[in-house]
């Protein structure tokens, strides 16, 4: 049944093994996460994840990782977890609702794009990625690239940036560094630079 909730377009496995490892947490409270409370994601959540995934697939093409999606009320905002050889994207429904209330579909797509960015970064590389960037900045850069392939309007790009700015991980650097990484990915993947600007 697990496959029913997975992002089936991604065919390649992340090289994960051993015990569950939290790769990325947007927000705080990862310690409260209980895997036993994982639930099937809502149809709306899957639709938006699939939208981000479709955009990401244009980047990784045939070398895409597989990510399984779960809804979990004990999760922090959004988590990417490597567990028993697979990647789990776990979201908190209340936070998704809040993000959507404030930023609409683009806000959710942006957060998912950041999480997928970690998975992409693990399998492929890109010339525009600065070697000095941390893992989070590289994921941001891939998120920017994914957003560029997501056919977002100017307002939606602004909303997406707003969501990324409002829901950082504890290890994220300051926003101006992040915006630089996102912008690099966005412009190198065909996004119109005119749509990009500081969200606040």
């Amino acid at each position: 049944m697990l496959i029913k909730y997975s992002v089936s377009l991604m065919v390649c496995w992340l090289p994960l093994s051993g015990a569950a490892q939290v790769i990325c947490v947007l927000g705080s409270g990862a310690s409260s996460y209980k895997a036993s409370a994982d639930q099937r994601p809502s149809a709306d959540a899957m639709q938006l994840v699939a939208r981000a995934n479709a955009a990401a697939k244009t980047i990784c093409v045939s070398n895409c990782p597989e990510v399984v999606v779960f809804r979990n009320t004990t999760a922090s905002n959004l988590m990417l977890i490597a567990d028993a050889g697979r990647a789990k994207l776990v979201y908190a429904p209340m936070v998704f609702a809040a993000v959507h209330d404030r930023y609409g579909d683009a806000g959710i797509v942006a957060l998912v794009a950041h999480a997928l960015g970690h998975a992409l970064d693990d399998g492929i590389g890109a010339a525009w990625i600065d070697k000095a960037w941390t893992t989070e900045l590289r994921a941001d850069s891939w998120a920017g690239c994914t957003l560029a392939r997501s056919s977002l309007s100017s307002a939606e790009v602004q909303a997406a940036l707003g969501a990324l700015a409002d829901y950082p991980s504890p290890s994220h650097p300051k926003w101006n560094f992040r915006l630089q990484a996102i912008g690099a990915g966005y412009t190198h993947c065909g996004g119109a630079g005119s749509k990009l600007g500081a969200p606040k």
Binding site: S42, A43, D44, A45, L48, R71, Y91, P93, M94, F96, A97, H100, G104, D105, A155
Partner: peptide, 14 residues
């Protein structure tokens, strides 16, 4: 305009 855009967006259940 921003308010109009927000109120026009589809409702979603997560």
């Amino acid at each position: 305009d921003s308010l109009r855009s927000r109120l026009g967006q589809e409702h979603r259940t997560f």
